[in-house]
């Protein structure tokens, strides 16, 4: 057998060293866990490396790899046959700014955890990566209205989460008084 083991494709190393931190952060938001993020990013990088000569000719290799990260996660999610459970509610009875921040962070994470992978990816691409709807549609390979719908639903879900927390807080306050 011929041993074809060689170094990575030319240009791949420089690109990957520059992009890995951002990809891991992106993967973490899309998957919701460090382990899943590493798996998804690694899988995407393997694909990118194997096809680098083709991908590097594209205008935006980042978009391709982000797409592969999302697809790797969706694929793993399907194989596992499980859905992420919303994280436990973490609240502080004292309504101070840091506590409010914890509540909001928790509400956002809980909302994200409840979303299907593609919808969650749309939210991350829109509000973390600051991409336009058309760019997101290209990455996710869906129609732009679908992306808008994903984002709209996510915002509505977040509002419900925050309203729900506010409601619980109000009830607790009334009970204590």
């Amino acid at each position: 057998m011929t041993d074809r083991a060689t170094a990575a494709e030319p240009g791949f190393d420089a690109w990957v060293e520059a992009r890995v931190p951002a990809l891991l952060r992106f993967g973490y938001l899309v998957t919701g866990s460090q382990q899943a993020a590493e798996d998804a990013v690694q899988s995407a990088l393997v694909s990118a490396c194997e096809k680098w000569s083709r991908i590097s000719r594209r205008d935006d290799p980042d978009a391709y790899v982000r797409r592969m990260v999302v697809n790797a996660h969706i694929s793993a999610w399907r194989r596992s046959g499980r859905r992420e459970s919303p994280v436990a509610l973490v609240r502080d009875a004292t309504v101070t700014d840091p506590a409010q921040r914890v509540v909001e962070n928790d509400a956002v994470w809980r909302m994200c955890s409840a979303l299907p992978p593609q919808q969650r990816a749309a939210v991350v691409l829109r509000f973390y990566e600051d991409l336009e709807y058309a760019e997101i549609a290209t990455i996710l390979d869906v129609a732009e209205p679908t992306v808008r719908s994903h984002v709209h639903r996510a915002l509505a879900a977040l509002r419900r989460e925050l309203d729900s927390v506010d409601g619980v807080d109000s009830a607790d306050s009334a009970e204590e008084s």
């Binding site: 170094a7 990575a8 190393d13 990957v16 060293e17 890995v20 931190p21 990809l23 891991l24 952060r25 992106f26 993967g27 973490y28 938001l29 460090q34 993020a37 590493e38 990013v41 690694q42 990088l45 393997v46 490396c49 909001e104 962070n105 509400a107 956002v108 994470w109 939210v123 991350v124 509000f127 973390y128 915002l155 977040l158 509002r159 925050l162």
Partner: peptide
């Protein structure tokens, strides 16, 4: 609401360990 979402996502993104050697593993 959008600002809350952006800010919170940034905070959560900062929780990721970006030193994980995924590039080496991929190679």
């Amino acid at each position: 609401l959008r600002a809350t979402l952006r800010t919170s996502l940034e905070r959560h993104a900062a929780e990721a360990d970006v030193t994980a050697p995924v590039a080496d593993r991929a190679r």
